[in-house]
Design a protein around this nucleic acid. Structure first.
Lengths: 125, 125
DNA sequence: CAGTATCCCACGCGATACTG
DNA sequence: CAGTATCGCGTGGGATACTG
């Protein structure tokens, strides 16, 4: 049962580079993916809650990244007019389309760590 | 037909963060993913060929990133003792395990560009 | 609580020149 | 051809202080 249509290489390379760049713009950076993963796994969170979960991030960075994600319609920002104001961040349904990718990156990361530790324990990178 | 087992959130968040970090270490940076994608799509390439395909990368960066990928056993480096020496780079079978992810990132990138252009053409990020 | 404003440094990355 | 060495800039991102 080999799949039939499969020239080994030569996919539409040229046109895909831009797409890759578009996606990586969002995935790049020290925090973006982690924020997405956190919101996916832990559900809606408020600003400070998020900051606590993302050990080490400062308010500036968190704000900036959340704005980017919001502009890209991956997360929704909801302001609750309570006593000193509260803000909820949550993955949008559209943002969920990234969950698959984020999860497979995670899985691959685990695999990879095992793989490296078997073959080159020195790295343990 | 709703799937049954699905508490909305709460996957094993804690332990996955490190895995995500491991993976992103390799995916981060301006060129790494592009190099992988290129080698996947275009097959084995020599140093200068690669450099030509990756419009804009300098020798230093290309070298550095290839070393990282080689250390992680994602690409194989083969020196051909020809006249002025020639080097082949190619994805390892293990490296292929990243191809799936890279391809889905590309796909998502295309999707996303369309999505953004429909809803917020101003961005065209 | 949920940010914004400033300051500042490390380092990612590019440009250029050189080598086996 | 396939790199290495050196220099130098821009900016991603941290720390601290302040605000509605």
């Amino acid at each position: 049962m080999k799949t039939l249509i499969s020239q080994p290489a030569q996919c539409d390379y040229k046109g895909k580079v831009k797409a890759l760049h578009d996606a990586m713009d969002i995935l790049q950076g020290k925090w973006n993916v982690l924020i997405i993963a956190t919101l996916c796994c832990l559900g809606p969170k408020r600003f400070t809650e998020l900051q606590r979960h993302l050990q080490g991030i400062g308010a500036k960075m968190l704000t900036r990244q959340l704005q980017i994600l919001e502009m890209n319609q991956l997360v929704k920002r909801t302001v609750c007019r309570t006593k000193p104001v509260t803000v909820q961040y949550e993955i949008t349904p559209y943002g969920k389309s990234l969950e698959t990718i984020v999860l497979s990156i995670m899985d691959w990361g685990q695999q990879h760590r095992k793989h490296i530790m078997k073959t080159t324990p020195a790295l343990s990178s």
